[in-house]
Each structure stands twice: as C-alpha cells, then as structure tokens.
Design a binder for these strands. Structure first.
Lengths: 333, 333
DNA sequence: CTGTTAGCGCCTTCAC
DNA sequence: GTGAAGGCGCTAACAG
C-alpha cells in the first residue's frame, strides 16, 4: 500500500491529482485546522495521501506560514543539562505542542561569534537559552527571531526570562544550618563569571549574615566532581567549619567522597554538607546530600507556556521566578 | 550599524538592491562555495549584507538545494543518552560538519505511530536512531529519507548500522572472572524485548559456558538503579555467587549500595561485580565498578562519517562494529 | 562574469 | 465549496 520507493518525492500535487481535486482543496483537507472542504472530497484526499504515503514538507510549509515549529535549545555543553529529568520533560512538553527541538551546542564564546558570522542557524520560532555564553541580543540576532527565552540570567528588557528564585532555597538551607547550631561555614563555588553564580554567592553571603554565620573559607571550583575533590583538600585535619555549602551537587559529591576516604565510617560526618541542584543522583544511597532544588514541572510548564504564547510577554516584564526549596538528606537533616 | 528591528525580514533581494546587483549575484557572493562573482561586486554584496544584518533563510534555501543540513536524533527518553559524553561529542562533531541536530523523543511505540500518522517530522538529511522503539523501515518513512543510521540493532539491509561489538568486552570480563577463580555467576538483565539486550545476554551465556562458569541466577531488571536495588534483595545471606554481571552500570550501582548497607566495610565485597556502559560516574569514588565500554570518539567519528558520506554505504553491508573492552575497577581488579 | 527566468512545495488570496 | 493564480526566499539553469 505504501510507496517506500521515493521518500519525500510525493508532493501535494500528486495527492490532489490522485484524488481528482485541486491543490488548494487538497491543502485544506490536509490541514489540521477546520477549513471549508466537502466531506467526500476530504475523504478522497486523505485516502490518496495515505495511499501515496504523503507527508507535508514542513519546510516548504513554513515558507508561507512563517512558522517552522522549531524551537532552538542553546547550551554550552550537554553537561549544562546536568538535570536530565528537567531536559527530558522539556522536550516532551515542547513536542506535545507540536514543535520540534533543535539542539545547539555552542561550547565557547568564540563559537557563538562563529555562528553569528556564518549564520549557521535556522529561523526558529523561539530559542531557549541555557548557555551563559550568549546574551539576549546576540541570540536574537543569531536566530533572526525576537522570541528568545533566557534561562541563564542574561536577559534584557526585550526578552522574557525564567529563573529559579535561588535566594529562597538558599535562605532555607542556611536557616537549617543555623537552627542546628552552625556558626561558621565554608562556601565552594563555580566560575564566578556567570551572572547566575554571582547572584547565588551573594545570596549565600546575605543569608550567612542574616543568621550570624561566619564565612570562614571560600573556595573556587568549576561545578565538577573533580573540583569538589580538590576543594576537599583545603580542609585540613579537624579544620572543618560547621557546614560546607556547595553551589553544585557534583562538587558536594566530590567533597563527600574525599571525606569518606579520610574518615571511614564517619557518616553523616563532622560537618553539615549542602549541595545545589537536587540531582536525581542524590536519591542513590551513596550520595545522600541535602540540596536545593525546584519543581521541574513548574519550570517546564512556564517555559512551554512562554514558547506557545509569546504575545503574553511585554517588554520590561520581570523574570518569572520559580521558587526553590531546601531538601534535607542525611548530610543535613 | 545592524538593524535589529525586523529580524528575518531582510531578504537577499534587499541585499542585492543595496549592493546594486541582481539577486543571483548576491546569492553567489554569499555562498560559502566558490562561485563566479567579480571581486568588487562580492565585496559590495558582503558589505550590504553586513549592513542590513542579513542572514539567509536556510529553509527557503533548502527548498531548492534539497538539503536541509538537519540531522534527526531519535531517542526513547533522554536517559537513553545515559552517556552524556558520547552525546556531547556526537553533537559537537555533527555541528562541525555544518549540520544541526534535531532531537526527537519518542517515549513509546505508540508515539512512533503517532508521529507516523501526523507526519510531525521534517525532511531531514539523515536520522540517527538510538531508540529501540523504531525499526529502520519505520524511521525511513517517518522522515521521508532513505538515509537512516541505526544504532539500536534494528537495522535491515537498506540501512547502515553502527554498534558496539559487545561480545568482545563481555568475553574479556567473563575471562577476568574465570581467571580469579569464579565458577558460579549471576546475571542481572534489562528488558529482554530489546534486540541488543537479547544479544548481550546470549553473549554472557556463551562466555560462561566457554569458561566453565555456571549461571546460578538470572534476574530481570529494567536498567535502572532502583531495579538494581530490587535485584540485590534476591541474594540472601551468604548466598552470593562468585560474580554478578549486570547489563547496565546503574543496576550494578544499586546492587553495590544495597550490599554496602548490609555489610558495612565489606569493600570490595564478597563477590566480584561487573557493570556495563562504563559511565563516567564510575570514576567517582563511591562507585568503583568494573565495567565494559568502548571508545566513544571512534563510535562518533564512524557515525559522523556515515552522515556526511551516505554514498559510502551499499545495501546489505554488515554493521560497523566498535570493539568493546573490559575496564577493571575496585569491584573486579 | 552577469542578469533573467523558472521553479522548489506549499498556502493563501480571490474570484467563481 | 472550489480552483486558478500568485508569492514565500532562494538558487539552478540558462542566455548573454
């Protein structure tokens, strides 16, 4: 029944001819929207399309409709998507709205500029920006679209933004430490060139001050497990503050592992340990690290809403904030 | 200098007009390929394009060139890409060839059929299939392309395939166990509906036989950490075989955690433990699990080669095999 | 080397 | 309800 032979070769003209109608009628019959076509012709068209194995060419379609049903997701590396659950949900929901996801890995600032020069980019309906290598204006130019949704904190007044309200969860975590008698803490951070990271660090400092906790040590890592390992070395024998706060779960995992090695059986350990991101990995027994996270489905539904209803955004609107919360686990419970 | 105002509104006609040349000349000047244009006109065109902030509409372009520079990657869930390093490399290399990646999450067999019916798919240049929900013929129809690269073992003679040669690494792992005096082993598997998994299981059985190892227990999981947890329960007190082989690292992690809980300090443990996939997570101290893996860059470069040189494949060719190897770690060293 | 012409596949007027 | 005609943005083919 199906003609596998020449994929992509069958056009709407073929369908129309086989159904004995004009191209216009075929187009209407094939449209998902309700359009004026008589019932019998619609059926003939549908039958002919099935018979031929016809599939509209979305590209040609978008040339007239001005919508490609393509959403770009811009990341530095795939590891930006440390949260696979979030990403999985995002793709599923985006697809559910009839749009496809095109994944753009920029890797470096230089790469952004290269994309800009070479114009290696589609005219997408919207762009979702996780990468902190690009600001809103750059991305708008990259994709020739004004519909850029910033998730990296580098938005401007022309582009909508969605971001976790990190201050809230950080406040809760620090309050937890204070409530357990912690008076001195260390902070292990990521690259402080990122705006998000800067804000995060500021939130911790503010919360420490609010709760009368002294920041005794601040160590710079790069979010990775290995940098957590390295950071752990900075705490000499019995030289631990009451709590260690990390701006990524991976770093907290590195610290936990080094500490376990040094002091076997010392679990939950001689300090309270707090991560950040609430990776699903933390539900594995080996890494019962208290963390800070937010409701992923809220984040995703806000994002998808923004994709499908761009008109709901007005220039100058403040970012949509997703509340974060402290999630206690064995390292701080 | 740049006109941010109307993104995507500037066409090659505008550029041609400003440069005082015909559309055809502008098109040639803007082409990455060397095409006949006088030097001064080329410069005027380039200047005009920069001035206007022009970017070609790849969609319109592809309508005539018949190539969209779009590669589809088909997965069940994002978690299929358990190996983020592999995926990251794949995207980077694909982009380096000037093509973009469109990510299609199918989630279920039903979803495949829905895509097929609704035709929610592009006419891509090539499709890479990780998902085991779809066979080659289905994917060819989904994307209206004959260029489908199967990575899930469900290839036919019309489509090229690339797959790890799992038998090799499995043989090495089982040989390692035998060399350490193991005579009885258990096998923890994933869904056996997958062809790849069936082949994997068969390889283990064959290797066991070859080395005179008795398979005392076979437990079915679903590749997940939790199913590893559940599987661990099946080994009662002191009821351990010499070795436990898992067809995924995540299951091995679950087993290791349960075992550590039951017998604290019993490390490396009373049995040899082997995972599968060689996740980068295994380099974290908490999960020093011996595993089976392959060289990612080889896999990726073969895949990308197949994308850019489809003509190099002839119907009926056997799959490209990427050798796998045993990677010893604390649980089996 | 250059400009004109003619589509690519589809959808949308606009008369009928 | 229907069909013919025109055009989306671009490039290939053709004369010059």
């Amino acid at each position: 029944m199906k003609h596998d032979a020449a994929p992509g070769k069958i056009t709407i003209a073929d369908v129309a001819r086989l159904a004995g109608v004009s191209k216009a009628v075929a187009s209407r019959a094939l449209s998902p929207e309700p359009r004026p076509v008589s019932a019998d012709k619609r059926e003939r068209v549908l039958a002919a399309a099935a018979e031929l194995g016809f599939r509209v060419n979305l590209l040609a379609q978008s040339l007239t409709t001005k919508t490609v049903n393509l959403v770009a997701v811009v990341v530095n590396h795939i590891h930006d998507l440390s949260d696979l659950d979030l990403f999985d949900l995002l793709i599923a929901e985006t697809q559910a709205t009839g749009k496809q996801v095109i994944l753009l890995r920029v890797g470096s600032v230089a790469k952004v500029e290269e994309f800009l020069r070479q114009g290696v980019a589609y005219h997408v309906d919207a762009a979702l920006v996780f990468s902190d290598f690009a600001d809103a204006a750059t991305v708008r130019q990259m994709f020739r679209t004004n519909h850029v949704i910033m998730l990296n904190g580098r938005h401007d007044r022309l582009s909508p933004a969605i971001m976790p309200d990190e201050a809230q969860g950080i406040g809760e975590a620090v309050a937890d430490a204070a409530a357990h008698g912690v008076t001195a803490a260390a902070l292990v951070t990521g690259r402080s060139t990122s705006l998000v990271e800067q804000a995060r660090i500021a939130s911790y400092r503010k919360a420490f001050k609010r709760h009368g906790i002294t920041l005794t040590k601040s160590i710079q890592g790069d979010y990775s497990y290995l940098s957590g390992h390295a950071a752990a070395a900075e705490f000499g024998e019995g030289n631990f503050p009451g709590a260690i706060f990390c701006t990524s779960d991976a770093m907290a995992m590195g610290i936990l592992d080094v500490h376990r090695m040094q002091f076997p059986g010392d679990r939950p350990g001689r300090f309270r340990l707090y991560g950040f991101d609430n990776l699903s990995l933390l539900d594995f027994d080996a890494y019962p690290i208290a963390s800070i996270g937010y409701d992923k489905s809220t984040f995703v539904s806000e994002t998808v809403r923004m994709i499908s209803h761009p008109e709901s955004f007005e220039a100058g609107r403040p970012p949509v904030l997703i509340p974060t919360h402290f999630i206690p686990r064995a390292t701080a419970s």
